[in-house]
Design a protein around this nucleic acid. Structure first.
Lengths: 144, 144
DNA sequence: TCCAATTCAGTTGCGCGCAATTCAATTGTG
DNA sequence: CACAATTGAATTGCGCGCAACTGAATTGGA
């Protein structure tokens, strides 16, 4: 295989990854729109449902997103009345994000989503878990 | 495992995929910026290097992008003088995109990129090819 | 042939992502 | 203690993605 061949679209890994990632987000979209959420907003809610009262910095570290993305997103979630944002008392540089009762209540409506998505992938739980592990390894290699 | 557990961020496939896809694009960014391209623009150039004079519709079908994304992107590539856009004579609804000499010349400067990226993944060619196949299968299942 | 339906590109509007910068709060060092 | 360096969030600017829509060109059925 010549070095030229590596420029063939069909031989690259990134493009399928990029297309698959967008396709997965599209699969979530109709389910999430019932809750009034976008996919990145859903990711933030997943973190908050696990750990309420987290700072913007900690959110960014979990989701690999910066304040340029998170600040406006969190303002939209605040407008939707799913979260509150308030300056930390201990360190006035940081902002804590907490769930409102509505934000907490939203969790129940979201419980059916992961299984619905898992079905859409057409993969078994074992295949899903293996693929997640492989993609995670790729992510760790590439992002370091 | 309870249905609640499926809402755990660390157990989902889409998030690693989403993070890995962005990380891969970030790995491309410094290499592509030397050529003056973004990653989606690079994808368009890959198609044109394989098949010059393609329509916007055909580009969209190969890259799974619509005219809302492609039209402004192609205008930027035209401003950069890498492509020309012209209404088709056979069917005036469609627009053909062709490489300029500069666009064609850019290919040589891009030849080293795929290998550099492959190295960054830390995976062997066999692992890369297997992962590409698995991700492609996921994409096909989810997008149909 | 006519004209309704379809197709193709373009436009608008909005929400990310992310680089780069700003600004206030805090930390660490002499 | 002073003050330079660092940190955390916000802001700005730009390029996607994509849904929804527009308008022109083409197609296909009555």
């Amino acid at each position: 295989m010549s070095p030229e061949d590596f420029l063939r679209l069909d031989l690259q890994l990134c493009f399928p990854l990029y297309a698959a990632s967008r396709a997965m987000v599209q699969a979530y979209t109709p389910l999430l729109s019932k809750l009034g959420l976008t996919y990145p907003q859903y990711l933030v809610m997943l973190v908050l449902w696990e750990t309420d009262g987290v700072t913007v910095k900690a959110l960014g570290e979990k989701l690999y997103l910066d304040s340029g993305t998170l600040t406006p997103l969190l303002k939209r979630l605040e407008t939707l009345a799913f979260v509150r944002r308030e300056r930390s008392k201990e360190d006035a540089r940081s902002v804590r994000v907490s769930l409102t009762p509505q934000g907490r209540a939203l969790r129940r409506k979201a419980t059916s989503i992961p299984e619905a998505i898992a079905c859409r992938t057409g993969l078994s739980l074992e295949e899903l878990s293996r693929l997640r592990r492989d993609v995670l390894r790729l992510f760790e290699n590439v992002s370091k």
